[in-house]
Write a protein that binds this DNA or RNA. Structure first.
Length: 869
RNA sequence: GCCCGGGUGGUGGAACGGUAGACACAGCGGACUUAAAAUCCGCGGGCGGGAAACCGCCGUGCCGGUUCGAGUCCGGCCCCGGGCACCA
């Protein structure tokens, strides 16, 4: 953007002007994938020690944001006080933490606090009506699927999920052993998703949870009778004197009377106890331990289990219940133990059938017949089910049954209904070469030694060329060789680097203080939190998650004073493109790049098929995500090369709203290019007019034509303002079209036209500046506006002139019984009574009322009048 | 299974409960040109009537409701897309 494709750097502590907001714009990379942008920027930062671009874009609800932040602070303070001043380590995140549920509403989830031993979380401070007023103008670089098509992106996401999963499994198996590997220790984020269950009452934070999930679930203690487990590891955490309660987790407490077994995870302490006593159990646990942990495998794995020979006591019936180890029970979820209710849980059912365990029906649905040889979906129906064979709970529906059972358990001192949270952690993956260096030095004598703080940061060499044969850093003696900070003897640096998510978790903070001598300084507290976050789905999940955690760590380290890095979220849509294919001899499908195909339009105006250059017909596959396999990716570089960055930006912003998917269209790109040419030609044609025009206010001595054109311009400006605020850039662009159309239709020779053109063009350029910065910036300068109002970057945002909108006579829509029947023109000054009279007197009313008496007349000022007969 | 998002002309999409289809793209007709490209002007939801201006009816996935008035609000469905998931 702007000169030489680069924006000025942020200027110290300068405050945004009233009604302005700061936001980030990729300078040299107008429409590249955000991931690329981030990386490139980081690169920049390293290379020249300065931050790349910030840009101001005008128009934002600064007051609104202020309110939001203040509200967030207040809430936090209140909670702190409510916690009784206890110094809990609070890392607050909100539900967004979970990568699972859709992306859109992550930042507006509320009243949900997630927690773990590490994290205390809260809803991010977003106002109730955030969705309605969620938008702030800013750069909307949409993700284009070129360099990293969606499939690849998807795979990357899955890979990370797998890594995290794998780590979770490993950690669960062996919590004491965290080898020196490539992840953060101690600070490893464990984030949570809320899930109803009856929580373990932890002494230090009991009572902090302030909300229960409706119909929430239970943790039900089953006490051990026949076994007195001891920790195989020798930990003294559990005292064997009293029979310990082993807790199971359920959201179906209403089926508690149907428990016929208890299943624990292979990593569960009870399993460990049983493994000591039985080689059979030992073998099973070992096998489960070495089985695949790939999610896809786990999900389709055969449900297997083994008897432990241990029994626990049912908390309500006192019955002895057999304990099994099941490979389908996850140690990381709940307490690693579930109550087996085979009649009403599909997995338990399959398990019970396989091992011949008793299946006891305790829920019935009218008109359905239970059959313990065949699973039926209604067995799990919470909505219709009523308790049966459940003693005093018979006849109760789901919610009352859960409440009654929870109450009975509570009365026995066995627990109560609570909300707990599922944790999700961040396992970062190893990178070779281009990632955040791990500041460790390996010394033969001293082992692994941290790089002393005075020597930080470790800077990577920038001229490595990966040749595919491993980590290029490992071949760089200049990087590797270092003296051991501890003993001074020759040692070697760590060559693995961390995931680039580590960088992207805080690089934007550095932009606020690029020359700081510390990690960040006070300027960062001034600029942050970022007013608006825009990202694709992957960023909305992973980057957002990590960045938020990272921020809280920085806050606790005293590096920043804010809790949340981002105030608002916009998840931008994907880019789709047409796909074309043909069938080959072997019955397979070959895809063809859209650039090779000429579409054939059928009689109905729809695409019927396509032809290759050699005349071969190909089939149309519709629009789909850009992907490598379908060969329908588009490289923004090609577009930029052919048409320029402004055209690419214009198309991407105009073709659809930012959060919707975008259908790629070469014709649309060309249309964007045509518009820019038209804008350029029009403005260049007005150089003399604009520069030579008398400096009188627009509208002075304006004739009808000039007045009308000016009105159009100001109407469009009003629309653009509204649309910028709600981040609907496609209609902002549309407002630009309207302005140009209005101005273009106004003859220079019309009375009073010149000041209107001069003003109109200046408004148009400022409105379109964020969309097509290069073009507008150059025209602004050429037309001489810069001499008067300064550089386009610094020019004040145009204001709507209400006088320009005023009309002498206005046209109202005339309805009879809510149906459009005509129009009437009344003076702008006409009052309700006058309008009503005019309507009653109109021919249309006479015609359509058919002589019926008028019951009522509704007048909507400036819009319509509706006559009800 | 759970969670999000979405169904409006040939197409992308507009429309603070108030003229449905703004603004574009593609298309068609015309001007300019030897011709083409570029550019400019015009037309465009469906059905029926009319030579035409125009008139009538229908129309925002489906069914119902609220309202003077519903694409918009409410209730119940259908379909599509995406994400997550041995989540107990």
């Amino acid at each position: 953007m702007g000169r030489a494709g680069r924006l000025p750097r942020p200027r110290g502590r300068r405050a945004p002007r009233e009604g302005q907001v700061l936001l980030r714009v990729d300078a040299a990379l107008p429409v590249r994938a955000a991931a690329h942008g981030a990386r490139a920027q980081l690169h920049d930062q390293r290379r020249d020690g300065a931050a790349p671009a910030h840009a101001r874009v005008q128009r934002a609800d600064a007051d609104g944001l202020g309110r939001v932040r203040a509200a967030g602070r207040e809430r936090r303070d209140e909670e702190r006080q409510a916690a009784g001043g206890v110094d809990v380590r609070e890392h607050r995140l909100h539900e967004e933490a979970d990568a699972g549920d859709g992306a859109r509403d992550r930042l507006v989830a509320r009243d949900r606090r997630l927690r773990s031993r590490v994290l205390q979380v809260e809803p991010v401070a977003v106002p109730e009506d955030a969705r309605a007023r969620r938008r702030v103008p800013q750069d909307a670089g949409r993700e284009l699927g070129s360099g990293r098509p969606d499939r690849a992106r998807e795979r990357a996401g899955h890979r990370r999920a797998r890594l995290a999963h794998r780590r979770r499994r490993r950690e669960a198996r062996d919590p004491g052993l965290l080898p020196e590997d490539h992840r953060l220790r101690g600070g490893a984020a464990r984030l949570a998703r809320p899930h109803g269950r009856l929580a373990r009452a932890r002494e230090d934070d009991a009572g902090q949870l302030d909300r229960e999930e409706p119909g929430g679930a239970l943790r039900v203690p089953f006490s051990t009778k026949s076994a007195t487990p001891q920790r195989a590891s020798g930990s003294s955490r559990r005292r064997p004197q009293e029979a310990p309660a082993w807790v199971v987790f359920t959201t179906r407490a209403d089926t508690i009377m149907g428990v016929t077994f208890v299943a624990v995870a292979p990593e569960h302490p009870l399993a460990a106890v049983a493994a000591v006593r039985s080689t059979h159990v030992h073998e099973f646990v070992e096998k489960a331990r070495h089985g695949s942990v790939m999610e896809a495998d786990v999900a389709t794995m055969e449900k297997e289990g083994v008897r432990t020979g241990l029994y626990v006591t049912h908390p309500l019936t006192g019955a002895q219940v057999e304990v099994w180890v099941g490979n389908y029970v996850l140690m990381a979820y709940g307490d690693g133990a579930v109550m087996g209710v085979p009649a009403h849980d599909e997995r338990d059912f399959a398990f019970a059938r396989k091992y011949g365990l008793h299946i006891q029906q305790v829920v019935a649905v009218d008109g359905e017949t239970f059959d313990d040889t065949r699973w039926q979906p209604w067995y799990e129906d919470k909505a219709r089910g009523r308790c049966v064979h459940s003693g005093r709970y018979d006849g109760l529906a789901y919610a009352p049954a859960v409440d009654a059972i929870a109450a009975d358990l509570a009365a026995k001192g066995l627990g109560e209904k609570q909300v707990t949270w599922r944790l999700r952690d961040w396992g970062i993956s190893r990178q070779r070469y281009w990632g955040t260096p791990i500041p460790m030095i390996h010394c033969d004598a001293c082992g692994s030694v941290p790089v002393p703080e005075r020597d930080l940061p470790v800077v990577l060499p920038e001229d490595c060329i990966p040749d595919g044969s491993g980590n290029p850093l490992a071949k760089r003696e200049d990087f590797l060789a270092v003296d051991c900070p501890s003993c001074g003897r020759p040692a070697r640096r760590e060559t693995d680097t961390m995931d680039t998510f580590v960088d992207s978790s805080w690089y934007y903070m550095r932009y606020a203080c690029p020359d700081a001598t510390t990690m960040v300084d006070a300027r960062n507290d001034y600029w942050m939190p970022m007013d608006q976050y825009i990202g694709g789905i992957e960023h909305a999940i992973l980057h957002l998650l990590y960045a938020r955690f990272w921020t809280k760590v920085m806050r606790d380290m005293g590096l920043v004073k804010f809790d949340e890095p981002f105030t608002r979220l916009l998840t931008q849509g994907m880019v789709l493109n047409h796909s074309w294919f043909s069938r080959n001899d072997r019955g397979g499908i070959d895809y063809h790049p859209p650039t090779d195909v000429t579409p054939v339009v059928g009689d109905d105006g729809r695409i019927a098929g396509g032809k290759l250059a050699d005349g071969t017909s190909v089939e149309y596959g519709g629009v789909s995500k850009m992907s490598k396999s379908e060969k329908n990716g588009v490289d923004p570089e090609d577009i930029i090369e052919r048409f320029g960055a402004d055209t690419a930006r214009h198309f991407v912003m105009f073709a659809s709203p930012p959060e919707a998917t975008l259908e790629w269209s070469d014709a649309g790109v060309e249309g964007s290019y045509r518009f820019l040419k038209r804008l350029w030609a029009y403005a260049q044609g007005k150089l003399v007019v604009v520069r030579g025009c008398e400096r009188v206010p627009a509208g002075t001595d304006a004739g009808e034509a000039a007045k009308a054109a000016r009105r159009e311009v100001h109407l469009a400006l009003r629309q653009a303002n509204y649309d910028y605020e709600r981040v609907q850039y496609n209609t902002v662009v549309s407002a630009g079209y309207k302005m140009l159309n209005a101005l273009d239709g106004l003859s220079v020779d019309a009375p009073g036209a010149e000041p209107v053109i001069r003003e109109g063009l200046s408004i148009l350029l400022r409105v379109l500046y964020p969309v097509v910065p290069h073009t507008t910036w150059a025209l602004w300068r050429d037309l001489g506006y810069a001499d008067e109002m300064g550089d386009l970057l610094d020019a004040p945002w145009p204001e709507v002139d209400e006088r320009a909108l005023a009309q002498d006579a206005i046209e109202l829509v005339l309805q009879v019984n809510g149906k459009l029947r005509g129009r009437i023109v009344v003076p702008a000054t006409a009052d309700r009574a006058a309008i009503e009279a005019a309507a009653r007197a109109s021919d249309e009313v006479a015609k359509h009322a058919g002589g019926a008496p008028v019951k009522k007349v509704i007048v909507v000022p400036g819009r319509l009048v509706n006559v009800v007969v």
